[in-house]
Design a protein around this nucleic acid. Structure first.
Lengths: 246, 246
DNA sequence: CGTCGTATTGAATGGGTTCAAGTAGCGTGG
DNA sequence: CCACGCTACTTGAACCCATTCAATACGACG
């Protein structure tokens, strides 16, 4: 647990600028937010269901995910988050966690007190709008996942998820040329898509054999972007990636 | 299309007070929002995917739903909305609709210009917080639906949905004693849960035979609330129904 | 009383699961 | 440098929940 230096909060600025326009004063306000930095191992809970967090978590490096657990150990992963994301921003207005937040890989996290977030939002309504917009995009992604889980075939779900991950990473400069790091297991993919790891494995094999992608070690390579988006019925509108005066 | 009188916006106040605390000035600000009232038949689109709405829609009476359409006419219903709800509030910060909004029953709707919403939010940050909180609760409900569709059995999904609907209606005074109006078809339920209408029918039959509920005509009666919540693994935390100073 | 939307039931099919048994990859320590 | 052990990945075979297709019943309403 160490205090943050200015440079630590740069991923947050990059992220917000991928979805909204910020003024200098607003960028400055972000940089001067107080934060404690913590390094966390892979597969550790950060915040748990029923907790009442007093800080917002900002991902500086690594991947984290939100999830719910049901009876008999069934797990549903709700979202993945990468550097620049604020995966529990909702806790600013929803006191009790209705899900858990955990690291996927080893990560560096910054914790920003709620009060300082609230204060910055009051002083910079446009910054508040950008953050609100961020939670709304989150919401849009939930809707898309719901649609996939409810109505798409296993292959299309997987293809869709990979398209989304690539585009989100590209938007913050963490991917290019249809390649990116993908540090999640097939069981993680399964738990995000409402499938079993076995079936994810089989479906990935088909996608591979169709020449659409390769997924080895922790690297995803999309060989045929247009084919993959077609297999996925992927339309990126829901990511709302055009920065916009909020 | 008629201008609204003050009384028209009362459902919105009731709704917001079910999730947040409002000051007098804020209630007043809501009542003085300009709005156009429109009566719409059942099963009509209000806003469509790709639209760029300039108004927020407030439900005054009737039920509406959000949905997405996929290839081959597959439909996923994303949420249901009842009087007091602002089902496209997200359009305030997301210019393009990533889904459609339609009436389920004949409805009265109020349309409030975005600029007036924005203005009220700037003047009353606490009102803005309440609205933000509302969209965050929406988000929490999406997460819960996703979990259900991904990981619950058909029976549990249906039971869960009915518990949720009852609680949401009760919270705004539209239901009591474990009875409520439920003006949706079995096909609607199916499209919200990622099932077929046939299977919803069969599963409802089982829930009925287990003595948990009856669903006839447009009325839902829950005979065994505790049994139903158990069958559903229903935990209302995610509805965040305790009004809270935002 | 006929008609249209909704609900109900049956029978066959299938996508995805479950259970089980390997195999590959990789960090660690002897 | 290789053996060990762990985790993730891969594959096969049987099974099952939910789908699909099709036919019938109900019920509200003109």
């Amino acid at each position: 647990m160490a205090p943050a230096s200015d440079a630590d909060l740069i991923p947050l600025i990059r992220k917000l600028e991928s979805i909204a326009q910020l003024a200098d004063a607003e960028r400055q306000a972000i940089l001067s937010l107080p934060a404690n930095i913590r390094a966390v191992d892979a597969r550790q809970d950060i915040v748990s269901e029923k907790d009442r967090p007093s800080h917002c978590c900002l991902v500086l490096s690594g991947w984290v995910c939100r999830y719910k657990l049901l009876d008999q150990g069934k797990r549903q992963i709700l979202s993945y988050h990468v550097p620049g994301d604020l995966p529990d921003l909702q806790s600013l207005h929803l006191a009790v966690m209705d899900h858990s937040l955990a690291t996927v890989t080893a990560s560096r996290l910054a914790f920003i007190p709620h009060e300082n977030m609230r204060d910055a939002i009051l002083r910079f309504p446009n910054l508040g709008a950008a953050l609100w917009r961020d939670t709304l995009i989150d919401s849009a992604i939930f809707r898309e996942w719901m649609t996939g889980i409810g109505r798409r075939s296993a292959q299309a779900r997987i293809a869709h998820q990979l398209c989304e991950m690539y585009m989100k990473l590209e938007a913050v400069g963490l991917a290019q040329q249809h390649r990116c790091e993908l540090p999640i297991t097939q069981s993680d993919i399964a738990d995000g898509l409402g499938l079993t790891n076995v079936h994810v494995n089989r479906s990935l094999k088909v996608l591979r054999s169709r020449g659409l992608l390769t997924l080895r070690g922790r690297e995803l390579v999309i060989h045929d972007w247009s084919g993959l988006t077609q297999a996925a019925e992927f339309d990126p509108t829901y990511l709302h990636l055009e920065p916009r005066a909020a």
